[in-house]
Design a protein around this nucleic acid. Structure first.
Lengths: 160, 160
DNA sequence: ATGGATTGTTGACTTACTCAACCTTTTCCG
DNA sequence: CGGAAAAGGTTGAGTAAGTCAACAATCCAT
C-alpha cells in the first residue's frame, strides 16, 4: 500500500498514520482487526442473505445440543431478547429447532437439524477461506500461541 | 468459574459450554473479547456521556495533526459520513477543530485543542484501568508477544 | 474550460442492540 | 402446602451505529 495506487494531487500519508498512545492498548488493535475480519465475513454471509450472529449461534448449538436460549445468549454475548430472534430465524430456515425441556418446562432445549449441520459445514469451509490470509501470515506455532493468549485474555475479561 | 457461584436450582453447565469447531477460528475469539472489552469501555464512556469512537478518533487526530477527515475515517474504519458526525461532536465539545487546508481547500485539516489533549490524557488513564485486568493476566512478555502477533494479523488483513 | 475525481456534508434508511414489561414455570422457605 | 421470589422466554418500544445515495465545492488532467 505504500507505493501502490499513487494518487496524483496530494501527498498521501496513507500508510504513515501514527497510532500514538493508542498503540499501547490491546483493545484498539483487537477492534481494528475484528472490524476488518467481520467486514470480510459479512461479504460471505451477505452472499447467503443472513444476519450476523446466526452462524456462531448455530455452531454453539451444534457443539452443545440441548442448551437453553439463555445459555446461548450468554455464550455469544447477546441479550436474551436477541437470542429469541436469532433462534426464530434459525427455526424458520429449518436449521435448528426448539423442544421443550422435559426437566424444566420453562426452557427451550435447542437442537440443530440435518439441514443445519449441512449449512454449518458449508459456512465453516467459507470461513476458512476468509481466515486463510491471516493464518498464513502467522506460522502454525504463532497461531496456537495466539489462540492460547486470547483464551487467557478472555478469561481475564470475565474474571476481573 | 467451575465451582464459584453455585446456583441452587438447576444444573448450570455455564463454564462447560463447548466451542466445537468454532474454537478453531481466530475471528470468533477476537469477537468475544472485543465485545466484552468494548462493554467495559462503554461503562467508562457512558459516565462521560459520549458516543463510542470519539476517543479513538481524537487520539488519531492527536497523533497525526492536520490529517483530513477521510484519512481519519479510513484509519478508524468508519464511513466518511460517520467521520463528519464524530468531528462535529469533537468540535462542539471544544476538543478538536477543523481548519481549511491551505494546499487543498476541499480538505479540513484536523487539530486537537488544549482541552482535547487534557481530556485525552484523562481517557487514556481510564482506559489503562479497563485493560488492567487483561494486562495482568498476561505477563509483560506475553503482552508484547500479543501486540506483535496482532500487528502481523492486521497487516495480513489488509494485504490479503 | 470541460470532464472526471476527491472531500466534505446532508438526509433517508436499515440493522443491531438495549430496556422494560409481561407470562409461565420452577424453586425457595416459612 | 402455599405464597414469594426468581428464572426462562417473548414481545414491543426505543436508541445508537452504520450504510447508502445524492449533492456542492474544489482540484486535476488533457
Amino acid at each position: 500500500m505504500e507505493e501502490a495506487l499513487r494518487a496524483p494531487q496530494s501527498a498521501e500519508p496513507d500508510a504513515e498514520i501514527a497510532l500514538g498512545r493508542l498503540g499501547d492498548f490491546v483493545g484498539f488493535r483487537l477492534r481494528r482487526i475484528q472490524n476488518q475480519l467481520s467486514r470480510e465475513f459479512a461479504q460471505v454471509t451477505d452472499r447467503y442473505q443472513l444476519r450476523q450472529g446466526l452462524f456462531s449461534a448455530l455452531a454453539i448449538i451444534s457443539a452443545n445440543p440441548g442448551l437453553s436460549q439463555i445459555m446461548l445468549a450468554r455464550e455469544v454475548g447477546l441479550d436474551k431478547s436477541m437470542a429469541v430472534m436469532v433462534v426464530d430465524e434459525l427455526e424458520q430456515r429449518g436449521w435448528a429447532e426448539r423442544r421443550r425441556s422435559p426437566t424444566d418446562r420453562r426452557r427451550h432445549a435447542l437442537y440443530t437439524t440435518e439441514a443445519g449441520e449441512a449449512w454449518l459445514a458449508e459456512m465453516f469451509a467459507a470461513l476458512e477461506v476468509v481466515e486463510h490470509d491471516v493464518l498464513d501470515a502467522l506460522g502454525e506455532g504463532d497461531r496456537k500461541l495466539l489462540t492460547a493468549i486470547l483464551d487467557r485474555v478472555y478469561k481475564a475479561c470475565f474474571r476481573g
